[in-house]
Design a protein around this nucleic acid. Structure first.
Lengths: 206, 206
DNA sequence: GCGATAATATGACCGTCATCATCTAAGCGT
DNA sequence: ACGCTTAGATGATGACGGTCATATTATCGC
């Protein structure tokens, strides 16, 4: 049965949302087209009215997830992001255990290596934005140092979440998150001009 | 046709080698049992004489790859690993482009999240060894600091290789490796007691 | 050497999945 | 309001892949 054009646009978005969650939770290959459609509240038949192929869905869903998922919640003063808070949130057990709603990069970057060009392009674009955001939030003075620190820190954050999720021992998993968090905080405070110390939250937490 | 017991043991190992390379190159799910057997020089039929299931193969291949693949080539004085050299080698374009023969963690850790328990256990064990090695190679004084730095650095190394491989832009990919490498070197030299500086290679490379 | 055993090969089975054809009913232009 | 258009539903198709049954042939214990 037909629906209004606005409704169809909404449905398209619902499919992308569902796919984005399912893919993050279980991976591109483990999720079938029918499953995505069912999760969005449809049957599998209408799929090819929205997408040219599953590969097309993968690329669009990845792009969608990266657009929707910000590195940090938009704070009141959006120009200055609190890097300590971003790190704590990203490397939390909560984020580790919430893959379906978490950072698409940590869930899907590794798999994207095996996906066709369009998906890789989407990831590349998203990654650029993430590095840009992290760079802006970095305390380093020179632009070059900001960029370097952003890449290093982002690699560590993504890597730690991936490892923490892959591991079978909860204690080790917690430890990976916690130690990486602490290690990044230490690095951050070493790079920080002394004048900025007062800005940091009082309890840097454990 | 039957083969000798020793031959069979060898064949088993050949299958694990082939599987290990194929899995690292294309992922667990993208490689079929028949493909692994063909790569090892057999047909698909004999597979279930060696393994109880594909899941079993995945776990054994992962364990095998992690045992065989050392973090660094065994240097003459094996007790003191050169962390700078390990980092340079790991974060090189050569390693990025050689997934099939490279570090299993960078290739398979993310996928292992979706694998059954046995595979996760294998990865966990391998990860423990890797962290142990990195910790021993760390310049930090306290054991606690060694462990923390090992986890942070290892997360950054694995994360950077994953991101560099996922990205569609060669320049960005190279940059991720290079900047993360530099960033880790900087961190390493900050943590280093001054007396050790003379040991570092003269050209820390670009 | 001979027969029981067992490692591979060949071929088949069954389920899943991406994709497509056809049907239906509701929106939209006139 | 009417009928053309089309979003979505139902069902089919063809390929692929994991697993198993059976056949074949070479090893190993006697």
């Amino acid at each position: 049965m037909r629906v209004s054009r606005a409704q169809m646009e909404e449905n398209h978005c619902a499919i992308l949302d569902a796919a984005s969650r399912l893919f993050r939770d279980r991976g591109f290959e483990a999720v079938s087209v029918s499953e995505v459609m069912k999760a969005a509240g449809f049957t599998h038949g209408g799929f090819y009215g929205h997408f040219r192929s599953k590969d097309d869905l993968v690329a669009q869903a990845l792009s969608h997830a990266l657009e929707v998922h910000p590195l940090a919640p938009q704070s009141p003063d959006s120009s200055s992001l609190d890097l300590d808070a971003i790190i704590d949130r990203y490397l939390s057990p909560r984020h580790r255990d919430n893959a379906a709603g978490g950072c698409p990069t940590a869930c899907l970057a590794a798999e994207t290596r095996h996906q066709p060009l369009a998906a890789k392009r989407a990831l590349t674009e998203g990654l650029r934005h993430q590095l840009e955001s992290l760079g802006q939030a970095s305390p380093e003075a020179e632009a070059e140092d900001k960029r370097r620190a952003a890449m290093g820190r982002w690699s560590a954050m993504v890597g730690a979440v991936i490892l923490a999720r892959a591991v079978d021992d909860p204690a080790l998993s917690d430890d990976i998150l916690e130690q990486t968090r602490e290690w990044l905080h230490q690095d951050l405070h070493q790079s920080l001009p002394q004048s900025l110390f007062q800005v940091l939250p009082s309890e840097t937490d454990t």
